[in-house]
Write a protein that binds this DNA or RNA. Structure first.
Length: 425
DNA sequence: TCTGGGGTCCTAGGACCC
DNA sequence: TCTGGGGTCCTAGGACCC
């Protein structure tokens, strides 16, 4: 049952390089929201020792003179999401069974397809590169966990030209490849588990593959037991071809500049709730509760950190921005205290369900629901057509102080007419 | 000066019930 | 001094992922 994991190399950085060819072969990093941390690095940036998740101001300081050699860009999610859609559609042509696992990764079932898996893998790679300009690596194995590991190997061994098929190898050869891989590289094993496993003498992917599953379960959990079985080639995880509805929807941001006033926090919370409500309606959902959260910076030494959150239940499940905002504001009023310099706020929609499956409220005004739905549908339509945030609730301002910093964002080449790339011939 | 955002699942332990 | 047994449900926290 061969399954492939196709993963874009340095996805965000590669997207930037496609549209700015002068960046190819250079050290490029893409920064998180607010230009805070490094979230993607080109091969050359990795070679300079820049770490994933490292705060950019620290990396820059550490690199000193070399920092000039690095191009740092703010994240351009509109561009990445569009490029991701293109890659996923291309990969979908190769197999009827595809799981889009993340913005830059896809699992594909290869059984029943004509031709050797490795050859299909090579074609996938060549097609994605030719049609989008994005380099990908393909890992193939009998289980998802082994396909992930094969992908890791394909990225390491340049001579393999981006494709690694573990099923084509003898068992002894597979074990020889797994032996040097630290157990923390295995899908499902993070830093904490790796530490605990080290105490049991399990240091490598091969060690975990050989460990008795029952013992693994005793020392940890069923999840790790499944991982151990998958490493042996026993499939425990299915391909999930339809993505299930979200169980919670979150929208939170670190502010570009800290804020202290209730008025500004209210503005931010209103804006975040509106965005979350849009996502909720996109999956035809309703929320029965909303969590509001505000916090000061955890990194400041000069003041005690303050963080507070509150869950506010809704009178009835709803997807109406106005009802959700009212609840969020009520929650905010309960947790706000003057004084702290707030650095971050957010909301989470909870207890989600499908709108169509709700029991009607015995005491509700029968027409109110239909009117709310019509209004929200119109709001969403206008914002889809004219751009996010074109129509908002009355207290949102265009350029608030708390808005994120994005000093180095590239144009949205593929989704905005006025930002199309122009050829200079 | 400057430290992301958005998800999932599992488990332990408390509350509550008979 | 000595304080039952067994079950369900919910939540907080911890771990993981990209």
């Amino acid at each position: 049952m061969p399954v492939a994991l196709v993963d874009c190399n340095s996805f965000y950085a590669s997207c930037e390089q496609v549209f700015q060819p002068r960046l190819q072969g250079r050290a490029v990093v893409v920064l998180s929201n607010n230009d805070g941390c490094v979230v993607a690095r080109s091969r050359e940036a990795k070679a300079l020792g820049i770490k994933m998740g490292e705060p950019w101001f620290q990396a820059r300081r550490r690199l000193q003179g070399q920092a000039e050699a690095v191009t740092a860009l703010s994240s351009n999610y509109a561009l990445y999401a569009d490029m991701s859609n293109r890659v996923m559609r291309i990969l979908g042509r190769f197999s009827p069974r595809q799981e889009v696992y993340s913005i830059d990764e896809s699992f594909l079932a290869l059984d029943g397809l004509p031709g050797p898996p490795a050859v299909i893998g090579e074609r996938m790679r060549a097609t994605v590169l030719g049609w989008t300009g994005l380099p990908v690596c393909v890992g193939i194995g009998p289980t998802k966990t082994l396909a992930k590991l094969a992908n890791h190997l394909a990225k390491q061994h340049l001579a393999w030209a981006g494709v690694c098929d573990l099923e084509a190898l003898e068992a002894g050869e597979v074990e020889r490849l797994l032996a040097p891989i630290p157990v923390g590289e295995v899908w499902g094993v993070g830093a904490r588990l790796a530490q605990r496993l080290a105490r049991l003498g399990i240091d490598t992917a091969l060690d975990l593959r050989r460990a008795p599953p029952a013992q693994v379960r005793r020392h940890s959990s069923v999840m790790l037991e499944r991982t151990a079985l998958e490493l042996r080639g026993i499939a425990c995880l299915d391909l999930e071809m339809v993505s299930p509805d979200k169980q919670q929807i979150r929208c939170s941001r670190t502010f570009g500049a800290t804020v202290s006033s209730l008025a500004e926090l209210t503005e931010a919370i209103t804006s975040f709730t509106s965005r979350a409500a849009e996502k909720l309606r996109a999956q035809q959902g309703e929320a029965a509760a909303i969590l509001v959260e505000i916090r000061s910076s955890a990194f400041r030494r000069d003041a005690a950190p303050y963080a507070a959150s509150r869950v506010v239940p809704l009178a009835a499940p709803t997807a109406d921005t106005r009802a959700l905002v009212a609840a969020a504001r009520a929650g905010l009023n309960r947790i706000y205290k003057p004084g702290p310099a707030y650095a971050k706020a957010g909301v989470i929609l909870l207890d989600l369900s499908r709108a169509a499956e709700r029991q009607p409220d015995l005491f509700a005004e029968p027409t109110a629901d239909a009117r709310s739905q019509a209004l929200m549908a119109t709001l969403d339509q206008i914002n889809r057509r004219f751009g996010r945030g074109s129509l908002t609730l009355a207290n949102a301002r265009p350029a608030p102080r708390w808005r994120r910093r994005e000093q180095f964002r590239s144009p949205r080449y593929t989704t905005r007419l006025d930002e199309l790339p122009v050829a200079h011939c």
